[in-house]
Design a protein around this nucleic acid. Structure first.
Lengths: 240, 240
DNA sequence: ATGTTCCACATTGTATACAGTAATGTTGGA
DNA sequence: TCCAACATTACTGTATACAATGTGGAACAT
């Protein structure tokens, strides 16, 4: 009795369209198919998705809110290019929030939740074996936000989701060349600690996991406004 | 040399308009001038602000992201009406994040930052004396997000800002009648603990402060979907 | 050759027109 | 009197037309 099934040509069922387009662009960004600083032209996207600029603008504004896109007035939207300082802040925020989350989950976990986490990691391992980067990034994010959901706090879950996607932008920009993909083992270790209700161990392992991810990027360079004065001081000679 | 000063009739300097309108509606919501569940009709707002629905829609979508507004497809926007469960989660999130923040600030505070906080509380006390609710809410929020800025983490500062404004919605809905306005003294106590670099005390006082705010609301009622069947069962008689 | 001015183009910003949808009121029949 | 189908209405959802803005290049003067 669903009307949609009888109207095969009505593709644009309002509300669903934005969601579809948002997911597509979102996925493209976090999987590095759209690299930081890539221009996102409204007309081009509108044609690509077969909708008007209205919808695209709506999606871009949402992505701006999610900090994955930057919109410069009268100049258009680009994939965000977080500074190293922002990167440091994101990791610090993740540490603060996710430490608390594993504490909560370790304290009041149930068998079902643990199974849920394990199945995600299982999929993650499969995706890694299949070299499916897009799916791996998705699942790695799922692990962290599912943890938040299991803590019974969707507010924190939302924050974590945002931080995880921002992390992938940071990795895109500052990843040091020879890094191993990811560490499903570390995820498993965290789950084990939770399953045994060992709060301290779970926090320790989460902390270690985040430090490990952070160690794969080089945030030492200063990107927030280069100081030409000092940079070229030797070449220019001292000026008043 | 500013072009604007020579074009007095060009009121709508692009970009600034949305910001103005957003601030106006935002302030109205957090100060309870617009109560939860209030309908926000696009046309009415467009006329009120002298712009087209395009701008209003943009602002409403932003407010939806900030969780102050809910948009129901084809039904329009309303001021959000957070459930008691959401309220609990917001306080839990604030506890997790702000505990970490005071720890960071107590560890590496400077004189300038402490003065900044004290001046906010001073203004707050003045606003309380003048019974200026709007300004009080604004300043109380400023205290918490400034704390986040002083911790050198604008990512967490953003989260706190959002949580503070959501808190005011929760207060609007669940505040128990005979509550004292707010506790500038508690803010001062937190500052003192920070100024003396007493991490543990600062965290303790922040924790106490948040608990105090939470104690002013009644989140015991279950708001997630009223069951009319059981509610009116005695009045209706039992039905199959 | 270099620097400046101005124009044309491309792209975003805003308003409006039109289409789609949900809620309400109304009418016809049993 | 009650119910159901329909019509009305008021709103949101989308597309498009138009205005404003920024950018790059060509022409010109120095």
């Amino acid at each position: 009795m669903n009307a949609d099934s009888r109207v095969p040509f009505k593709f644009k069922l309002g509300q669903r369209t934005d969601e579809r387009i948002h997911s597509a662009i979102y996925a493209a960004i976090v999987t590095h198919q759209l690299r930081p600083a890539t221009a996102l032209q409204e007309t081009a996207l509108a044609e690509a998705f077969g909708v008007s600029r209205t919808i695209i603008r709506k999606v871009l504004q949402r992505l701006e809110h999610e900090k994955l896109v930057v919109i410069l007035p009268n100049k258009g939207a680009r994939v965000a290019r977080p500074t190293t300082d922002e990167g440091r802040q994101v990791f610090e925020a993740r540490h603060a929030i996710e430490s608390e989350l594993v504490r909560l989950v370790a304290r009041k976990h149930d068998e079902r939740g643990v199974q849920q986490l394990r199945s995600i990691v299982a999929e993650e391992t499969k995706a890694q074996a299949a070299n499916d980067k897009r799916r791996r990034v998705q699942l790695s994010g799922d692990f962290h936000s599912t943890l938040a959901e299991l803590a019974g706090n969707s507010v924190l879950a939302g924050f974590v989701q945002e931080l995880v996607s921002r992390t992938s932008l940071i990795i895109a920009l500052y990843e040091v060349p020879g890094t191993v993909p990811c560490s499903c083992d570390e995820h498993t270790g965290i789950i084990d600690a939770i399953a045994s209700s060992n709060e301290a161990l779970a926090i320790e392992r989460m902390s270690h996991h985040l430090k490990h991810v952070e160690s794969q990027v080089d945030l030492s360079q200063s990107t927030g406004g280069v100081d030409f004065m000092s940079l070229f001081s030797s070449a220019l000679g001292k000026r008043a």
